[in-house]
Amino acid sequence: MGAFFINYVTEHWAQMSSQQAAYLLSVAMLSFMFGRFFSTWLMGRVNAQRLLLIYALINVALCAVVVLGFEGVSVVALVATFFFMSIMFPTLFAMGVKNLGPHTKRGSSFMIMAIVGGALLPYVMGLVADHSSTAVAYLLPMGCFVIVAAYARAALKKSDCCTPQKQ
C-alpha cells in the first residue's frame, strides 16, 4: 500500500508535490503507530476477531473510496487505511498459531513465509497501475482486506458457536 502512496497522492490531490506527499506518508505511518497502540488497548475491551473484522471491513470501504479517486477525499481515505491496518498482522498471526499445539513452530514458520506476499503485491500493483491507473491498483489490497474480513468472520463464528452461553 505504501509503495504507491506518493504516486497516488500526487495524482489525486491537486498541487501536491512529491515532497508534500512524502510528508503525508509519514503522517500515514504515524497513523499506523497510533492505530497499533490504540487498538491494542481496545482489544482489552473488544474481542480480537470482532475488532479485526470491523477494521478489515472499514479498510474495504476506504479502499473503495481510494479506487474511486475523489480529489483529496481519497487521499485522506488512503491515510486512514494505515490506522486500520495496524493490528492486522499481529492479530492474524496470533489467531493462526492458536491451538496448534506441537505444530506451533511449523505453523508460525509458514505464516512468516507468507509475508512474501507483501513483496509480490507491489509488483502486481505496478503492473495494474501501468496498464490502467494507480487508483485501480488499489483493488488488490482491497481484495486482501476482503480475505482478512472473511477469515475474521469465520474465526468469530467458530468462537461464538463453541463458547458456552451464559444464563
Results as ranks from 00 to 15, higher is better:
Phe38Ser: 08
Ser133Tyr: 08
Ile115Asn: 12
Met85Trp: 13
Arg50Lys: 12
Ser31Trp: 07
Cys162Asp: 13
Ala94Lys: 07
Met142Asp: 07
Pro102Glu: 15
Ser74Met: 03
Arg50Cys: 00
Val67Leu: 09
Met29Ser: 13
Cys161His: 14
Asn99Ala: 15
Ala94Gly: 04
Cys63Ile: 01
Asn99Phe: 14
Ala64Gln: 07
Phe32Asn: 09
Ser159Asn: 13
Leu25Ser: 07
Phe83Cys: 03
Leu24Asn: 06
Ser133Gly: 08
Val116His: 04
Gly96Ile: 09
Gly35Arg: 02
Val128Ser: 04
Ala61Ile: 02
Gly117Cys: 05
Leu120Ser: 03
Leu92Gly: 06
Asn7Val: 10
Gly107Thr: 04
Thr91Glu: 07
Lys157Pro: 05
Tyr138Phe: 09
Phe34Gln: 05
Leu57Gly: 02
Ala28Lys: 01
Ile58Met: 02
Lys166Cys: 07
Ala152Val: 11
Tyr8Asp: 07
Phe4Arg: 08
Leu139Trp: 04
Leu24Tyr: 11
Leu127Trp: 15
His131Pro: 10
Ser39Ile: 05
Leu100Asn: 05
Ser159Trp: 11
Ala150Gln: 10
Ala3Gly: 12
Asn47Phe: 06
Phe82Asn: 03
Arg45Asn: 03
Ala155Phe: 10
Met95Glu: 10
Met113Val: 13
Lys158Gln: 14
Cys161Ser: 14
Tyr8Lys: 04
His12Glu: 01
Gly2Asn: 12
Ile147Tyr: 13
Gln165Pro: 01
Ile112Asp: 10
Gly126Met: 07
Leu24Gly: 04
Ile58Trp: 02
Gly69Ala: 01
Tyr23Ser: 12
Phe84Asn: 06
Pro141Glu: 01
Ala21Trp: 04
Met16Asp: 03
Asn59Tyr: 03
Val9Pro: 01
His12Gly: 04
Val46Cys: 05
Ala77Glu: 09
Asn99Leu: 13
Ala21Asp: 07
Ala152Gly: 06
Asn99Thr: 13
Met95Ile: 08
Phe70Thr: 12
Met88Leu: 04
Phe38Arg: 01
Met88Ser: 10
Val148Arg: 00
Leu78Pro: 00
Ser74Arg: 06
Cys162Met: 14
Pro122Ser: 11
Gln167Glu: 13
Ile58Val: 09
Ala14Met: 13
Pro164Cys: 11
Leu127Pro: 09
Lys98Trp: 09
Met29Thr: 15
Lys166Trp: 12
Ala94Phe: 00
Met33His: 05
Tyr8Leu: 10
Leu51Ala: 09
Gly72Trp: 08
